[in-house]
Nucleic acid binder design. Structure first.
Lengths: 151, 151
DNA sequence: CTTCGTTCGTCAAGGTAGTTTACCAGATTG
DNA sequence: CAATCTGGTAAACTACCTTGACGAACGAAG
């Protein structure tokens, strides 16, 4: 029967994985070509959470969905590369504030630009309505999977 | 303006990441509940490529899109867990053939079943046509991103 | 003011998943 | 038969995340 074949061909999982890999690789390549060759994939998930005002590591960890130890490491990496600086929080001696440096702001802007560029490429290829439907369907799918997992 | 806000809301990247994470987590959870609690995420990308007939590590590496060294490690892991066995290739003394064991076949079947289950959940949530369109759009998107990256 | 539980961040160690580099052994071809 | 290509392995390293244990500081209760 063509049943087993059809099941496989219709499965969205490999497509999802392929798109994910392509997204990260392209993001990295584009940033590298903008002069930010020392960023790693993890940075791009942290960058959208940062700004020049600053935030606490623990808050970042919660928003990024990882442990504060992981954030600590990541922030250190970003610090030695000169993208962020850590200043003491004047309202709490224990706490730090992680803030983008000038270079960090530049990376932030470049990241945003790359995201827009990727979005434009997607729209050029699929059209605006299909892209926004894609996004909506992905979110619904993620929710359904999560609900299935935790149940 | 609402422009900057709209750009962010429309961006497909976070949705893609969320769906990817949810997919892997749900896959793992389902397999664990089927009695396969010792599988890791990496296995699920390798399982669809394996069968009881067997294949060479190098071929697996190409199909999985990773190096043969990585496959070598992965296969060793699968071997100590009793999912695959390596037998010498009778047509080439250098080569090995990686073959699913009985337990491996069971895991393979369970994986396929889980994939079908996830597919069903997706269809229940989004409908058949939206799921297949989602898959198609993801593949097109991946191709567009790849083309953009390598260009 | 002291004590106590909580929170902030760090250090240390380890696990997972891959990579690069270097290498050996068998196969293939000039 | 010698050169070279191919199959596979070993070791070291990178990246990213985890758990566990901890010291320091905050805040509330006594």
């Amino acid at each position: 029967m063509s049943n087993s074949k059809k099941e496989k061909e219709d499965n969205f999982a490999p497509a999802l994985a392929a798109a994910g890999r392509a997204l990260i690789a392209t993001m990295m390549a584009k940033l590298a070509s903008c002069g930010f060759s020392d960023v790693t994939p993890a940075f791009s998930s942290l960058m959208p959470l940062l700004d020049a005002t600053g935030a606490r590591p623990t808050a970042l960890a919660q928003r990024a969905g990882i442990t504060k130890q992981a954030i600590s490491q990541l922030v250190r990496e970003l610090e030695v590369r000169g993208y962020v600086e850590q200043v003491p929080d004047s309202t709490d001696t224990r706490a730090k504030i992680v803030r983008l440096t000038k270079r960090g702001v530049a990376l932030h802007a470049a990241s945003a630009e790359v995201r827009l560029e990727l979005q434009s490429v997607a729209i050029a290829k699929l059209g605006k309505s299909r892209v926004s439907r894609l996004r909506r369907d992905l979110l619904e799918l993620a929710a359904a999977l999560e609900e299935m997992r935790t149940r």
